[in-house]
Design a binder for these strands. Structure first.
Lengths: 232, 232
DNA sequence: TCAAGGGAAATTGTCGACAGGCGACAATTC
DNA sequence: GAATTGTCGCCTGTCGACAATTTCCCTTGA
């Protein structure tokens, strides 16, 4: 058993990472709105760094799907419409469905069961405190843990990419869900299905769960669009 | 029908694109082998450009999965093992399975049927001429067309990312398939299933088709690994 | 009033330079 | 002789500057 190292490896390249984090927060929090221009020179000036690391951070967020870039025009916060969001959930469905089945098939449920339950508990508390943003964060962690445990790193890579987008646009919508705690508790059904050891049951539970979220989020988004309350 | 423009608009960003293309070719052709270091300063010197666009191209290929980067050490050609390849095919399976079903469901088969058949014909010819690389190219185009027609842009984005990896490592393996023309003709089964208009049948056909490819490629890779003939 | 045209300002694409990190090898200590 | 420490060269991370392009506004003309 190798002993715990005394210090964490001190990550350099911190600059790019930190800038990416700052921009992400700005997008998620709504300080930067979809369609807004993100000029590297402006960001660089504000942050007191050169354009190079800002550029890198921009590329990072571009591949994460939060920004889009146009040649000679720079970066813009990605605009999302309901159809796009629907595609996103459809993809998420494909990935998580299989990942869930795989986790069961590989017999890895027991290893994460307690952790999943703890996360559900956290979600319930947060939803009662109206800490929606944090609740969504834990929600994603719950799903991520299952995908990670599946053992297919490609699944996890796609999930992580989608997660930042889901988080960003869910935050935009603010309050999609009606009954506090209900969604959080619905996650219990997934854990039960995982416990059953039945691959198909687990797949179906996740299918249903994401389907509900998809209908809620996309539906809400469509209503906003219909009302002309431009999210773009 | 929009006519093909005579020349691509020569954006300045073309430099990054061209470098990315050059590096991609070098990797696919085997001039750069998995694990090889790709020093931006060296590439920049050879090509007679500054490091900035080389760096951009590197990031591009990193997000395409052809390169990996390590902090302060630069880019390396990605190494792939059989498990990784298996994960890749599993993901591809998820995507294409649903995309195929979606294409049928949306009633878009008729619009692409002729094109698909033409591609199969091309593949047969190429396989008889032992033009494996080009055959794989058309093969991917065939699958891509179906995914594209599904209408879910997210599916297409994931597929495109995987495609470059699949192409790169399939080229490494050189000759996986035994009977020339057999694989090419197997694509006819997919078109038949699409024609049937039965969503489930189409899904199953694609499932089977990719499953066969997966077994062939991953199996071949595993044998190479077992023989100690290091691909890494 | 509005469309077309012509800059000036703003912003990106590219460049060369410099400082610091990392790996390899030599020097040193036990 | 093995392990640790010092040194060197190469490479990346970051920077400021310049060139090319786009955008915006203001003028001009119908």
């Amino acid at each position: 058993m190798d002993s715990e190292p005394l210090f964490e490896p001190l990550t350099r390249d911190a600059l790019t990472q930190r800038i990416a984090r700052i921009l992400t927060d700005a997008i998620v929090s709504g300080k930067l709105k979809p369609g807004d221009r993100v000029a590297e020179s402006v960001i660089a000036r504000d942050l007191g760094v050169s354009r190079a690391p800002v550029r890198e951070a921009g590329r990072l967020l571009e591949s994460a799907g939060l920004l889009v870039s146009m040649a000679n025009r720079g970066f813009f916060v990605r605009t999302i419409d309901a159809d796009d969001l629907d595609s996103l959930y459809e993809l998420r469905l494909c990935i998580e469905r299989e990942a869930t089945a795989r986790t069961v098939r590989e017999g890895r449920v027991a290893a994460i069961r307690d952790q999943l339950l703890a996360q559900i508990k956290d979600m319930v508390v947060m939803s009662e405190d109206n800490q929606l943003i944090h609740q969504i964060g834990v929600d994603l962690q719950f799903h991520r843990l299952i995908v990670e445990t599946s053992g297919n790193l490609r699944f996890l890579a796609v999930f992580d990419k989608l997660a930042s987008e889901i988080q960003a646009c869910t935050a935009l919508i603010e309050t999609v869900f009606d009954e506090p705690g209900k969604v959080a508790r619905n996650h219990l059904l997934i854990v039960e299905a995982l416990d059953s050891g039945d691959e198909d049951a687990a797949r179906a539970a996740m299918d249903y769960h994401i389907g509900v979220a998809r209908d809620a989020v996309v539906g809400h988004f469509r209503r906003l669009e219909g009302a002309g309350d431009s999210i773009v």
